[in-house]
Amino acid sequence: MTEPVIKPVTESATDQTPFKAIPPCAGLLPLSIGALDLTEQPHAQMTLLIPWEGQETALSKALEKAHGVALPGVGQSTQSHATRALWFGHNQVLLTGPAPDPALADLAAVTDLSDAYACLRLEGAGADRVLARLTPLDLRDVSFRQGAVARTEIAHMAGALIREGEAAFGLMVYRSMAATLVHEVSDAMQSVTARAALGGE
């Protein structure tokens, strides 16, 4: 038996790291059932911003200057190209896309959450009926418009819902619950598709 050779970590060694990032839903998605598609969103950097006391306006200006998005209102999101700022709870905003401007740390608590969440997208006719089986929220167009964000429970898991289109929703739960979410959503997708085939809702 030969002793394992431990090579010193050099810059070139870290470039060719044997570790690969595995998406939270690797091996589980994409999934298509009937008219419905469940996919994993492309991985993006996610940063939680909690403005210091009284710094909300200054943070909004700094965000707009650095990333082109203003601080979203309660239950809303702002977007500029691939950069999004999601209202993410009381006094909390999630910046997705770019690496945050270091200057933001003067105005807010800045926390990297890039690996914390599984981000899914449910799209297709009947997506709202799928979610109706998983969350008590009113997701009709009139009450949950394009760009709206809700922190709520999805199949009893704390998460976030984002309206991304007429029949498209973003779903977020903690990464550790990714497989459970895929299971729950795919069950609901099957149920909705089966009932539609029988001519029901």
Partner: peptide
């Protein structure tokens, strides 16, 4: 505590 919501 709005634990499953906005955390307020």
């Amino acid at each position: 505590y709005h634990e499953q919501g906005c955390a307020a």
